[in-house]
Each structure stands twice: as structure tokens, then as C-alpha cells.
Design a protein around this nucleic acid. Structure first.
Lengths: 234, 234
DNA sequence: AACGGTTGTGACAAACTCGTGACGCTTCCC
DNA sequence: GGGAAGCGTCACGAGTTTGTCACAACCGTT
């Protein structure tokens, strides 16, 4: 496995104890760690340092974690940086909201050093694997999309998709590996804040699954959250 | 030395290890690499993607490399793409057969990264020296256009086209394989930002289809988007 | 002015797409 | 174990998109 050390990680937390624990473990793994103790600092740091990963506590004085995340995602320079949210709360809707705003992963306090480093490694690996393709062609596992030709392939064979199915697949592929809530998908695929039942997304996911075929479920269901295209990059 | 990066290369191999080695080295050189793991996928891909170069393993499950190559050479759209054959076998007659079928070069496993990139560069340079289109004649599948004489042929027989139909066909042929929205076609064929209904395009496409004849739909409809000219293997 | 050919548009039918209610199954939680 | 919530899937009808016909406007030529 490729060693991911040398990656730069920005840790954002206002509690000194937690901050130091995080810095300790991450440094030990060989990451270069920088810190911020509030939202404004986090944004400044993210923009200046362009870290490879951000670990962000939800509870911050002033601007809270959600807002930091939202601003990160809106800014061109930082919108692609993977973010792990950190929270003491376990509530389900916290998670949902986090994913909807664009978090890539989630850690609840208390956490073990092992859990931390595992998730960090996983995210860095994934980020490296996907060179953020706005390109002509997206390929993930057996599925491919030729955007110029507007064609989709599964296992090399062309798959006939309706316009909506095509867009849905495109969005899922672009955000492969990340959970997308039904609402996010609605927003991305139907673009407007259309008055459409979220259940409708299920229907189209089912249609896509059928058309793409294959034994392994390429589009995974994340119960209570939404869907995720399996990240199968080689 | 001219930098050849940005060229698109299709790599066809069923062994994951070899595939990833190839992809790694080629990506490193700046090429845009796509892959296929069997013959059928390779053909589909070659037709859709129109890579600048194909690296083709002889040993494939199902349809073997020779057959893939033969079919490539028979298809108008892909017949000019340089192909490098890849094989573990050293036998002389393998090489001979490969060249007879239309390979441009040959690499035996194991190979060094340097050998690979040298041959790729050489072939791309050669291919670039002879530009394909903007020429007097465009031929795609059964359809041919003689631009100097301003005449069109289908299956060898001349087709009588109106000026507008001719321009529309020309545009579609030049951008074959890519979807063109009705608006794009209007812009390209009627050039001005003419105040013309987009539905009018449909009408002319229908007229073209009728005149070009043939069972196979040469001009494909991409529902919700527009039209795309397609070349079919013979 | 008539004529033959070309081109744009409205109209309509056919084909296709897509949202939704319904229902049964699974998973989760108490 | 039982109920509730989440999810997969079927079927259907309204709505949209496309293929095609017919026709009128236009244009250069006779």
C-alpha cells in the first residue's frame, strides 16, 4: 500500500485537550498538521495552506462547523478538500445534515486513535485516486461515461439511459464514494428546488441499477442517508 | 522534441497487474488513459472514444487481440488509429501475423517503462505528421463527402442534397460521435443566431435520414439532447 | 407571371419519460 | 415479538419529446 504520509492535515477544534490529542496521533503517523481554533481561522488556513484533509469539530465558538463546511464548499480553491466532521453528538439528523452540507466522513467523540487514522488514511487514499474529473470521460469500475458522446457503458457494452438516468449516473460517478442524500441528488439532478418526492429518487436509482446490471451492487444504499456509488478506482 | 501529452490512449488488457502498470506509466507521462478488459469493450471504446493510440494485448478472454485488431481495421472510424500489440510470446510468426493484420508496433512482455514510452511517442509523432480531417474527403461508414466537388455519397451512390442538407451532414460528420444539441447545430449550420425554431432541425435531420437511406440509423437521436452521427462497423 | 426547387413552421400522432400511489419486504427500535 | 420506518419494485397515466405530413413562403430562372 502506498504510504500517505507527508499529507497535510488541518485540524479545527476549540478544545485544547482534543486538539492536542488529534495533533499527537496524526503527527505520530507522519502527517504534517496545522491547527485552527475557530471558524474564521479555519477558512483562512484552508485557503492559505490548502491542506489535503480537514478535520472539523462541529461545536465551535462563533461560526459553527456547518457554516465553515458550507463556506469551504462554496469557495473554489477549497471545495474539493475532503472533510471529516467531529462531534460529540450522536443524533442521526446531525449526520444527515453533515453529509448534506458536504462532509466526507464523520467521527463521533470519543474516538480511538485507530479509528481516527483509519478514516484519515481511507479519505486520503480516495482523494488521491480521483483526480476530480470534469473531463470528457469518467470511468469507475465497470461503468463508464462518455460525456461528449453522451453515452454510458457497463462492462464495455453501451447502456441506453434516459436523460434523467444519465444525469443521475453522472452525479453519482462524480461524487463516487461519497454518500448523497436524496435531497442532494434532487438538487443536483433536477437542479431546481423542484417539488418532487424524495422517494422518486429511489425509483430512478432502482432503474439505474437494473440497466447497469452486474452482480455487485454498484450503487449502494446507505440506510437513513441516501446512496453512494462504490469507489472502485484502480 | 514535441510534447505529445494530452493524447488519449486506450489500453486493452485483461490482467489487472499489467493494466495498472501500463496506466501508471502512461498517466505519468501526461497521457489521458482509458482502459478495456476484453475485446468487445475495446471495440466499443475505440469507436466511442477515438483514442489517438491503442495498446492491445494479444491474449484476451473471448475475442483475442488479432480479431479485435481486424475489426478495428475494418471499421472506418477506427481504422486509422495506431495500434501497439502486446504479448508475452516471442515467436516470430506472432509478430508477422500481427503486422499482417495491421499492427503498427509490437512490445513483448516483460518491457521497460522506457521502451513503452519511446514506442508510444514514436507512433504518436508519426500519426500527428499525417493529419486526418479538414481534408477533401470525409468518409464515415457508408457515407462519404467530397468537399471539393461538393457531393455526397451513400453506399457509393451519389445522393442529391440541398445546400442546407449538405452543410448539416458535413457538420454532423465532422463532429461524429459527439452529441450536438439542436442549438449547436443551428449555430453551426445556419451560422447566424438565426431566429429559427429548434424543431426545424428535426425536420432536416429527418430529410437527411431519408435521403441517406440504409437500415441502420446513421444519425442517432439522443433524446432530450440532440443528434449524433454514428459510424457502424461493417 | 409561372415554375420547380428549397426551407421554415404548425399540427398531430406515436414513442418515450417520469412522478406517484400502492404494496410487500427488510431493518431497526423498543 | 411487534410496530414503525425505510426501501425496492410494479403499474399506470399525464406530460413531454420526436417523427412526419402538409403547406405556405421564398427565391432564382424562364
Amino acid at each position: 500500500m502506498v504510504k500517505m504520509a507527508d499529507a497535510r492535515i488541518l485540524v479545527v477544534d476549540d478544545e485544547p485537550d482534543i486538539l492536542s490529542v488529534l495533533v499527537y496521533h496524526l503527527s505520530r503517523e507522519g502527517y504534517r498538521v496545522t491547527t485552527a481554533v475557530n471558524g474564521q481561522g479555519a477558512l483562512t488556513m484552508a485557503d492559505a495552506e490548502r491542506p489535503d484533509l480537514i478535520i472539523l469539530d462541529l461545536m465551535l465558538p462563533g461560526m459553527d462547523g456547518y457554516e465553515v463546511l458550507q463556506r469551504l464548499r462554496r469557495a473554489d480553491r477549497t471545495s474539493a478538500i475532503p472533510v471529516i466532521l467531529l462531534t460529540a453528538r450522536r443524533a442521526e439528523d446531525e449526520r444527515v445534515r453533515g453529509f448534506e452540507v458536504g462532509a466526507d466522513d464523520y467521527i463521533t467523540k470519543p474516538f480511538s486513535a485507530r479509528e481516527l487514522t483509519l478514516r484519515v488514511e481511507a479519505l486520503l487514499r480516495r482523494a488521491k485516486a480521483e483526480p476530480v474529473s470534469a473531463s470528457r470521460r469518467i470511468a469507475v469500475g465497470p461503468v463508464e461515461l462518455d460525456r461528449e458522446a453522451h453515452r454510458a457503458f457497463s462492462d464495455g457494452a453501451e447502456v441506453d439511459l434516459t436523460p434523467l438516468e444519465y444525469r443521475l449516473l453522472e452525479v453519482l460517478l462524480e461524487r463516487r464514494g461519497r454518500v448523497q442524500s436524496r435531497r442532494q441528488l434532487l438538487q443536483a439532478v433536477w437542479d431546481t428546488n423542484a417539488a418532487i418526492e424524495t422517494r422518486t429518487v429511489d425509483m430512478h436509482v432502482a432503474r439505474l441499477r437494473t440497466k447497469l446490471g452486474g452482480a455487485a451492487p454498484l450503487i449502494e444504499t446507505v440506510r437513513g442517508i441516501g446512496y453512494r456509488f462504490r469507489a472502485l478506482d484502480k
